[in-house]
Structures are given as C-alpha cells and as structure tokens.
Design a protein around this nucleic acid. Structure first.
Lengths: 351, 351
DNA sequence: GTAAATAATTATAACGTTATAAATAACACT
DNA sequence: AGTGTTATTTATAACGTTATAATTATTTAC
C-alpha cells in the first residue's frame, strides 16, 4: 500500500516462524542448496538468482542459525575475551572491550566475555573453549613469561592474542605496553625532582609486565644510584587497605621514602591516602608517579603526575591483529608495543 | 597398569578426536540413543547401564556439543548479560558479573556478556538474542519506567531480569536498590549537618532509579524546607570535567551550595576535585554524600560520607531469581529491593 | 508353558546448515 | 541434429544431539 516499507522485519511474536533456508527456498520454488549458495554469493549461481534470493532473504529478515553453522562448519564466529573480574579493573576490562568491539564492528565476529575466576586456574576457560570449540579465537591478559595458555594454544594452532609478552621462542600475536619505559621514566622523573629513596609497588611478579616494570625501574635506579625499595609482600593487586597501611607506616618510620611509583590506579589512590593520613605533603615531602588507564586520576587532588596507558587503543589493536591471525597471516609480525605517554609537565602548566 | 588413573582427559592435541555420543556408543557396543539417555539418567535405562555409560563418558572426558544441543532442543544454556561499557562502571559491570557468576556456579548455565554500545539503541541486542535465540535468558540494567525492552521480552514470554524497576503493570523479575531511600537519607544527613543549600546530581532522568533518587531527595527537602538545586544540564554520567567545573563555578558564585549528593563514584570524585580547586574545605564549608559501589572511595582524602550499594549481592540475587523464573515460578514474587547501607558515623569514630 | 505385561534397548527422524557430487539446462560448433 | 562444453541448479549426506516410535528382552501371571 504505502510507497515503501523499509526493513520489514517480521514481528517477533511467535506467530511468524523464524525464516530458514528451507522456508525461503520453498517460498521461491528453489532448491534449499541454491538459496544457501546464492546467499554466499557463489559465482556458480546465476547473478540474477543471487540477487533475487538475497532480496527475499532481506525482506523476511533471514539470519543464519549460528548453532547450525557451528555444527556443520565448526566455525563459531565468536571471539572470546577472558576477563578476571577482580583484576585491577578500574576500566581495564571495559576499555579493552570497548576497543575490541570497535575493531569487530562490521565483521561477522561477536565478542563474548568469559568471566575468569580467581579461584579457578587460568588455563581452565581456555581448555573449555578448546574442547568445545566455543570460539574461533581467544583474547586474554595477565601474560606470564612462560605462559601455559600460550603454550597450549600454540600447540593446538588455535588463534589467540594476549595482552603482554612471553619469553617463548615461538612468535605469537600480542599487544603490550612498554612497561620497561614506564618504570624507567617514572623513576627518572622522581630522581629529577630530587627524590633519593623511592619505592616501587610491583604487580604480581609472575606476570611478564611486572618484570619489565621492575627492570625499567631498576635501570633508572642504577643510573642514578639512589636508594630504593620494592616490597615483596605487597603488590598493586593487594587490598587497598594494605597498600595504604604500608605507606602510612613507611612514612612514620625513620628514613621514610620520598617517592613512589605505582603501577595501578587503586594502588595510586591508596598510596596517596596513606601518605596523606601520615601528614606527608605531596610535592613537598614526597612524590607519587602513577599509571593511569582512565580519566579517574585526573579528578584527584592533589594532582598526581602519571603515565598513561591507552587500553581502548590496545583493545582495538588486538582486534585488528587477531583478525589478521585468523586470516592466516604470519604470526611473527602480529604484535605491537604501545609507547608510554607521560603526563608530567601539564601539571605545572595548569597550576 | 598403574593403580588408578584419575580424570584421564584425552590430551587436546588433534590426534585424539573429540568424544561424542557416537564414539562412546561404538566403543561400548551400545546404541547411540542408549548412551544419550543413560547420560540423562533416564529411568527407562537400566541402572547398571547408566552407571557404566556415565563412567565411560567421564573417563574419555565427554562434554556434550552445545551447538548440537541448541540445534536440537533450542536450549542454549546461556544467560546473556547486556552491559554498556561506558556506563558508570567503576566496577558496576564487574561486581554484577561477579555476583551472577557466583549464583550460576554448579548449574549448566554459562554467563555471556554482550557489550552494548552507546550509539546503538538499547533494544538492539535484545532483538538479536530474541531472533537468534542465542540465550535462554537476559539480564540488563538502566531500566526505564516504561522500558521497551521489558515490554518486548514480556510480550515474547522470554525470561529476563533487570536491575531497576519499571512502572509497567505486568509484574516481572527485577532487583533494585532503594534509591529513594538513598536520596532521602543523603539529604537528611546534610540537613542534620546544618547544610541549608544543597545540590543533587541526578542520573539520566529517563532512568527509573534516577526518578526514585530525586523523589527521595525532594521528600527530604520538603520536610526540612531548605534550598536546593538539581542541575538539568549535568548528570552523574556527564564527563568528569564538566562536573568538576560545575562545582568549581558554583563555589565561586555568590550564595554557593554547602552540600552535594552524588549518585555515582566518578561524580563524587569530580565534585571533590572541583570544590578543592575552589578552595572549599570539605566538612567545614561544604559536605558531600556519595554513593559507593566499590572500596574506591575509602581511599579518598578527605574522607567522604557515603551510602553503599552492594552490586555483587545484587548480581547474585539476580542470578537466583532468574533461575526461579526459568523454572517457571510466579513472576510476581521474583523481585528484591536492596536496602541502603549508610557509612556515616564510622568516619567520626575513625577520626 | 504360554500369553500378557513390563523393562530395556534400539531405529528413525529432525533441528538448519554447507561441502560434495550429481544432474540438468543452455549454448556453441560442426 | 548431435556432440561437447559450460553454466546453472539440485540431491545427498553429514555435523551431534534428542524426542518419538518401534523393537526386543525379561518378568509376571495363571
């Protein structure tokens, strides 16, 4: 009746059945196979037929059944991001998701986030995906130097990309942040500000990035010859209260540290709280350099100098590289090291 | 050879094929159907046979193919959580996921997180799940009084639970936080502290909880007769810089507000920053009452009085109620209103 | 000891898709 | 018109599962 009826999706109401290849083929008087191939733009099917079929499919709002496709082809069109909900997550997960989704836009891939729990081994969700082939590719983080997940996936030739590097000899896709440089620049900055006894809060020392961070930090220490301390009973993943207490106690001891490098946002806040409670003045008695992955620390007073890690971009890059991997490209090139961004001087300017 | 070989999962190496009902049936000399039914503990199968089959399945590490099950039965065993990555998410998503996963432990259900984008309509992922039946049930948040997602799902009799209430007459499962009480208690507290001109940062006014929050706030205002302001060009989802500027400007005007109620963590931090920048002293010139969903605000100095919303528990409750819904229980009872937890006096005690 | 009843197992078909092989239609050329 | 090609369409089988119907084995009743 009306001039045009756009996207006449059949209403989802249970009366109209879900369109399938069969229903389309019957309504058009074609073989089911023909419809299938026409929708795939198979050149063996006449162009005219392809057009007609595609139009008809569009009109009834046909969408292929993913379970059936999976069963037949083994392909899921799903990419699984494994995320530890208790990770240092002020947006870690969200930013990564954001970037990944961005890069998956317009492709057939769906992003599927699998929660990973602290009390289950990290290998478990990977094992499950591998056994049940519930995804075509995997994304994960918290990479270790000899990460067993990487090993397992490489052995099975299963597409993946991880956030963080390994020390394995087989090349594999990854995106990492230059935590060596972070540690180095942060420590240098503290030295430059005249600090002579500084603390680094490490991450889990089993994680590669934590080692890079320490290495960068130590390099700067050695260059400058100042005193330092890396607590071994505390990390940026420790409960905030513990970090706060550490700083508080350290400040009230004799010979207190005059600088802190914090690898995470919560730990930065907690350090700040501890030092404030101990009536240390930031910028005068002590300085903090934090890592920032969200605009959160911008809202903190007193302002803190930070180094920025852009996780949304990391996520996007991971998506891009992963798709190249899925297309079978040479793995030795599918990696990227993100540079550090210092947010130092702007602070003085703003003041 | 050895006394016992526990969980002899076949190694995932491509040589050993994935076990299926067929492979088990052949190796045991039983019909495929028998194996299927034995694994389902069908009483028509002899107990002895059931035991043997289950043991064998366990031994080879059989796991049913979910795609095949979905194709045959239509059941996915998946619960989809729709999450907006740009939501006020300092852990909102993570906490909810954490709770949901907890309540899904030991069931056959998998949690699947679908990212929802700001620039796509909220109904879209729901539509997709409905059309493709990619999940058995849906969880979502940011509920509106006449939420079209709720309507659509109710119409299709599709199981779901939402965080937040609607004003629809048909009962449906939900978990909500008592934001009326939050608004009320927060405003009362400010009055009690002698504040006489207070500001509420609302959430998106289209969301039900925002209306509850405002209603509670206004009730306290009317009871006490003090001056107030609810900005209409700014919300807790506004960029932190905007909130900070608002507070900064407000503080430097004549007749500045002496109290703030913030419905979110970022907005609390931003308010604090703006007021600090304007050299207002918290607790003396002005007070802030924030909502807290993570331990984050505990690390902020000066300390801020907050009201706590436990999202992990909310998630757990949602999982439980949703499973009751899936079992077909009466929807009019499947809801829960979380009480507010004031974190007020402890602060004085600590001081 | 046989018929009827019950217990236990099995055969068949179907969910929606696609890869492979087979069939048919259309066309060109002698 | 008949043969060989090529273009186009179709039939068949399979992925792994489960609901239904059918079959076979075992027990009970008299």
């Amino acid at each position: 009746m009306t001039a045009e009826r756009k996207t006449s999706k059949a209403p989802i109401n249970g009366i109209t059945k879900k369109p399938t290849l069969r229903s389309i083929s019957e309504s058009m008087g074609l073989a089911l196979t023909t419809v299938s191939r026409a929708l795939k733009n198979d050149p063996a099917i006449a162009q005219a037929t392809r057009d007609r079929v595609q139009e008809a499919a569009q009109a009834v709002g046909y969408m292929p059944d993913r379970a059936a496709q999976k069963l037949r082809t083994g392909k899921t069109n799903v990419i699984s991001l494994i995320l530890n909900p208790h990770e240092e997550i002020l947006g870690f997960g969200s930013s990564l998701i954001s970037g990944l989704t961005q890069s998956l836009r317009g492709t057939d891939y769906h992003l599927n986030v699998t929660p990973q729990f602290h009390d289950t081994p990290a290998i478990e969700p990977i094992n499950y995906i591998l056994r049940n082939k519930t995804a075509d590719a995997i994304v994960f983080s918290r990479t270790k130097p000899f990460d067993e997940r990487v090993r397992l996936l490489l052995e099975n030739d299963f597409p993946f990309i991880c956030h963080g590097r390994t020390e394995l000899s087989t090349p594999h896709p990854y995106v990492d942040y230059d935590n060596f440089d972070f540690g180095y620049q942060a420590a240098r900055r503290l030295v430059e500000k005249g600090r002579r006894n500084i603390v680094l809060f490490p991450a889990d020392s089993s994680l590669t990035f934590s080692q890079h961070l320490q290495h960068g930090f130590m390099t700067a220490i050695q260059e400058s010859g100042i005193a330092f301390r890396i607590p071994d009973d505390i990390s940026i993943y420790s409960p905030a209260d513990e970090i706060r207490n550490y700083c508080y106690n350290a400040a009230t001891n004799k010979n207190p540290p005059d600088g802190y490098v914090c690898g995470g946002e919560v730990s930065t806040l907690a350090s700040l709280a501890g030092l404030t409670d101990a009536e240390q003045e930031i910028g005068k008695d002590v300085d903090i350099i934090g890592k920032q992955t969200s605009p959160l620390l911008d809202q903190i007073r007193p302002k803190i100098e930070t180094i920025y890690e852009d996780l949304a971009t990391a996520g996007q890059m991971m998506g891009t590289l992963l798709q190249q991997r899925l297309r079978g490209e040479d793995m030795s090139k599918l990696n990227h090291l993100q540079e550090t961004t210092l947010i130092f001087d702007t602070i003085k300017q703003n003041k």
